[in-house]
């Protein structure tokens, strides 16, 4: 039995189908990347998995059917990082991280001192040490994203859903975020589903990739083991003509790089 199984999931907005018949499963310790062009249904899929969107089909985490869980139970098992957090109030970064402890607190309870210490440590872990008291609204978009990551990591959930978490991050923090995720995954039983825009990160950090096109699964690939020509063929369905190259950094670690092949020139005949 798999750690997390999704079967025959279909969802849409207002009767218009966006996702059709999505099925996949992942094992404990797996970082599953979702790749797809804009509008292919990545965000919709993550929202449906989080049960934030009405859908057909079922998602089963260990023995829990996610659709049947109340928000409180769901939040104990799963964490979610939206593309952009909707926090619009002036509150401190530490208070944002402390929100993550809500599933472990009763309605009127306040966060304990131990939780505050843990939250401050989580902020340090994502690279925001010393910024506990800063107003969340004054942080940059990337720092906000890291703050939300800290909130999600420190709450003891087993399955994370991340929607383009790297989009606002600079070069260094993109790697930092995925390394943090990989480190988080080493303590089983845990798994994460992450939608990514950057194919380089997807190819080098994810254990498995799910390719999404027009609301359907185009295929799935394992960057570590699959032969390059198969990956090239699948990826070019999403990105157009591409080729993969393997590079080695100074420490001897191999990286897969995706190169865009020249395509027919775009004739911009819109203007007269």
């Amino acid at each position: 039995m798999h750690f997390f199984t999704v079967s025959n999931l279909s969802a849409g907005y207002g009767g218009k189908p966006v996702l059709e018949d999505i099925s996949f499963s992942l094992d404990s310790g797996c970082l599953l990347g979702i790749l797809g062009a804009n509008g292919s249904g990545k965000t919709t899929l993550l929202k449906a998995l989080c049960n934030l969107l009405p859908h057909k089909g079922s998602c089963i985490l260990e023995e829990n059917v996610l659709e049947k869980l109340k928000p409180g139970q769901m939040a104990k098992l799963c964490g979610y990082i939206p593309q952009r957090s909707g926090i619009s109030l002036d509150i401190s970064a530490l208070d944002v991280v402390l929100m993550g402890f809500n599933p472990h607190l009763k309605l009127l309870e306040r966060p304990t001192q131990a939780m505050k210490t843990q939250a401050a440590r989580a902020l340090g872990l994502v690279g925001l040490a010393g910024k506990e008291a800063l107003n969340y609204q004054t942080l940059s978009e990337g720092q906000k994203q890291l703050c939300i990551l800290a909130r999600t990591l420190c709450t003891g959930s087993r399955l994370l859903f991340l929607d383009e978490p790297e989009s606002a991050l600079d070069f260094r923090f993109r790697y930092r975020m995925l390394e943090l995720l990989q480190d988080w995954l080493t303590q089983a039983p845990r798994a994460a589903v992450v939608s990514l825009h950057d194919p380089f990160l997807a190819l080098n950090y994810c254990h498995r990739l799910l390719l999404l096109s027009e609301g359907r699964i185009l295929g799935s690939l394992c960057p570590k083991t699959d032969p390059p020509h198969r990956m090239e063929e699948l990826l070019s369905h999403i990105y157009g003509e591409i080729s993969l190259a393997s590079c080695t950094d100074r420490s001897g670690r191999k990286h897969l790089v995706m190169l865009k092949e020249a395509s027919a020139p775009i004739r911009a005949n819109i203007l007269p």
Partner: peptide, 10 residues
């Protein structure tokens, strides 16, 4: 916060 986010915070 945003409603989905609040829901996923329990």
């Amino acid at each position: 916060g945003e409603e989905g986010e609040a829901r996923m915070l329990g």
